[in-house]
Write a protein that binds this DNA or RNA. Structure first.
Length: 106
DNA sequence: GAGATGACGGGCT
DNA sequence: AAGCCCGCCATCT
């Protein structure tokens, strides 16, 4: 475990149910000054999380408020269901209301 | 240490 | 609106 991974995981674990945050946001709150760029690294960490982890990785989405994964097919469906189960509503364009569900680290 | 990689972001077409 | 491209970061080879 690197220091960066530890910081990111600790932060995401604090994200409350029914809330979401962007990859860039995680990097920023985790203390990375180049958040917009470090976002990629955050994604890599989420990707490597094992099943049964205590890190709510599904609450981490892209800056547009949608489930990204760039270009996958069925992966997003699982994440979306997990979020909807917590009360997060998706708009017609498949996006969440950032103002309503966004988390800023409190 | 150099090159490749990708759950990203932002800007341009 | 949808897609493409480029830049940067942490990691892995």
């Amino acid at each position: 475990m690197t220091a960066f991974q530890t910081a990111v995981c600790r932060l995401v674990r604090r994200c409350p149910r029914g809330k979401v945050i962007s990859y860039g946001g995680v990097a920023a709150i985790a203390g990375n000054p180049r958040a917009a760029r470090a976002a990629r690294a955050v994604g890599a960490i989420m990707r490597d999380l094992p099943d049964g982890t205590d890190v709510p990785w599904w609450r981490v989405i892209n800056s547009r408020g949608e489930i990204s994964h760039r270009d996958i097919g069925h992966g997003p469906a699982i994440q979306r269901k997990l979020l909807e189960r917590e009360g997060v509503r998706f708009g017609g364009s498949g996006r969440v209301d950032w103002e309503r569900y966004g988390w800023s680290g409190e």
